[in-house]
Design a protein around this nucleic acid. Structure first.
Length: 425
RNA sequence: GGAGAGGUGGCAGAGUGGUCGAUCGCGUCAGACUCGAAAUCUGAAGUACCCUCCGGGGUACCGUGGGUUCGAAUCCCACCCUCUCCGCCA
């Protein structure tokens, strides 16, 4: 959420920032609500002060053994009016707060202005798409040809948007997570964590807006628990309601987890194959940093994700999302897009975002010991490093051979017990 | 599932109706001592919000939500969480 002080002191800047994302902000409506709040709060606090003072007098009088009935009569008259004011104020503050939590983050100034993914900006490109001397298949056909990718069984078990992997493909899937975890822990300085795959509504609302995105999540029936759509949900909440020391920063975590997404609103989109599933694995990298370090940390974290693609020899490009394509909580995002010969297109395989203080304010994650001397919100960042299912897709499509087998990237061979090629079972 | 104990400031831990926003300790910060450091001594400091003639004044917050009362950390009710023991269990 945005800093309420900023809305009060510099509303035009907020309005302008949101306009860059294509979000209209009701300036007059907000001002009116704020004025109402201010008046009501002053009146309420005045009454409370009066009651407190009189009550204190009662105590003093009674302590001396004197008669307090006159004061009691006076304070008795305050009660009803005060109660009415208090509940009106509470309701108003609740409304203001709920409203505040539905406002998206402001884009950083350097983020390119635009309306949709069409306007995203390519930052760099690595690796050239391979030239095939045969017509490359998509991963569904490659997987089916190997007899190791099975959507029919998955559909029988759980319906659409699930998959079953068998044999060498299941092992490749496991190997990918291990490989990514090893690189991030050994070479990039992240601490591996294992976490719950369900979180409370409060935690969900800490990383994004539960009110806005509830439908994207799977909820556990009869419980205030949601299946996580990414490890960002549990891991970022490590620091909720926490006061850190400046010297503890940065915190760096890497977490492999399944991710569950209802994919509401994506009907008809990517219905074929493993690109868009209700359940997929992801290795997520996260950082909690000093506010002054977050821009730098964002570049670094993005390179950490790119490093995985480099090692796997997969061609990709790095896109800076334009203001209109930015996620709700993000101030700046780089998407990594891997080349998929089967689709003849670059497709998202990682999203690396700097949330600045947006999530930290929502979840009260602060640190102390900075220059300001007082507690202030930390900055949070995260990125996929990488989405495991989509990486598997990329390997199947980029590594496919004319005979239907798939070449394993050299970096993964040790993780597959020396197997260099996946062949029909 | 059964029984019990408990949730208080960065941590630890007092406080059972009236100057308690809260004792003491540890830790933190500043100053003194020191060439410097340690030890010691002195002092400072919760968070959020409102008003301000910028000196300061005020409100709320003791797990959460209600209630009783002129007044609640303290009494009552509900809920959440943690710990211990027993049972069950991968």
């Amino acid at each position: 959420m945005l800093d309420i002080q900023m809305l009060r002191k510099d509303l035009p800047a907020v309005v302008a920032g949101l306009a860059r994302r294509g979000v209209a902000f009701d300036e007059a409506g907000f001002r009116a609500l704020e004025d109402e709040r201010k008046g009501l709060q002053s009146r309420t606090e005045e009454l409370q002060a009066k009651r407190n003072a009189l009550s204190k007098q009662v105590g003093i009088l009674k302590g001396k053994g004197e008669d307090a009935s006159a004061v009691l009569a006076e304070v008795g008259g305050i009660g009803d009016g005060l109660k009415a004011n208090e509940s009106a104020l509470a309701a108003l503050q609740e409304r203001l707060n709920a409203f505040l939590r539905t406002i998206p983050n402001l884009p950083r100034p350097e983020v390119a202005e635009g309306r949709s993914s069409e306007d995203n900006v390519e930052v760099r490109r690595r690796g050239a798409p391979r030239v095939f001397d045969f017509a490359p298949k998509d991963h569904v056909d490659v997987g089916a040809g190997l007899g190791l990718l099975d959507f029919d069984t998955a559909a029988k078990l759980s319906g659409a948007r699930f998959s079953v992997l068998r044999g060498a493909l299941a092992r490749l899937h496991r190997a990918l997570s291990q490989f990514m975890l090893d690189v991030h822990t050994r070479e990039h300085g992240y601490t591996e964590v294992y976490v719950p795959y369900m979180v409370t509504g409060e935690c969900a609302d800490g990383v994004s807006s539960l009110a806005k995105f509830r439908d994207d999540l799977f909820k556990v029936e009869g419980r205030d628990l949601y299946l996580i759509p990414t490890a960002e949900y549990p891991v970022t909440n490590f620091v909720r309601d926490t006061l850190l020391e400046a010297k503890d920063l940065p915190l760096r975590f890497v977490c492999h987890s399944p991710c569950f997404r209802s994919e509401a609103g994506s009907y008809g989109k990517d219905t074929r194959g493993m690109i868009r599933q209700h359940q997929f694995d992801k290795v997520e990298i996260l950082q909690v940093v000093h506010p002054e370090r977050s821009a730098e940390a964002h570049e670094e974290l993005t390179r950490h994700a790119e490093a995985i693609l480099d090692r796997l020899e997969l061609p990709y490009r790095t896109m800076m999302l334009c203001t209109g394509d930015l996620g709700f909580a993000s101030a700046k995002t780089y998407d990594l897009e891997v080349w998929l010969p089967g689709q003849q297109a670059y497709r998202e395989i990682s999203s690396c975002s700097n949330y600045e203080a947006f999530q930290a304010r929502r979840m009260q994650a602060r640190f102390k010991g900075g220059e300001k001397g007082r507690a202030e919100p930390v900055h949070t960042l995260n990125g996929s490093g990488l989405a495991v299912g989509r990486t598997l897709v990329a390997i199947l499509e980029n590594g496919q051979q004319a005979d239907g087998s798939v070449a394993v990237p050299a970096a993964l061979v040790p993780y597959l017990g020396g197997v260099e090629r996946i062949e029909r079972a």
